[in-house]
């Protein structure tokens, strides 16, 4: 698995459950790749930020 494939799966993980094979390959890749680990945190962060954004637009 390369970074391009890993990042796509990391995005899809937010939209569908990954299968066992995908989880294993992704786990192996992110263990050795700090850029993809960061990408993983950051796409999750995008989700958190989006929720905050909606909250902020209600509260402002």
């Amino acid at each position: 698995m390369n970074c391009k494939q890993a990042t796509q799966l990391l995005s899809e993980k937010l939209d569908r459950p990954l299968n066992a094979k995908e989880k294993v390959s992704l786990g192996v890749h992110t263990t050795i790749c700090i850029s993809c680990r960061r990408f993983s945190h950051q796409v999750e962060e995008l989700r958190t930020i989006s929720k905050r954004y909606v909250e902020e637009s209600k509260n402002e």
């Binding site: 390369n2 970074c3 391009k4 850029s35 993809c36 960061r38 950051q42």
Partner: peptide, 17 residues
């Protein structure tokens, strides 16, 4: 963003937030 073999381009690698 990615090289031909699918790795991050050096200057496109995600940085620590």
């Amino acid at each position: 963003l990615f090289t031909e073999n699918g790795h991050w381009q050096k200057n496109e690698r995600p940085q620590k937030w």
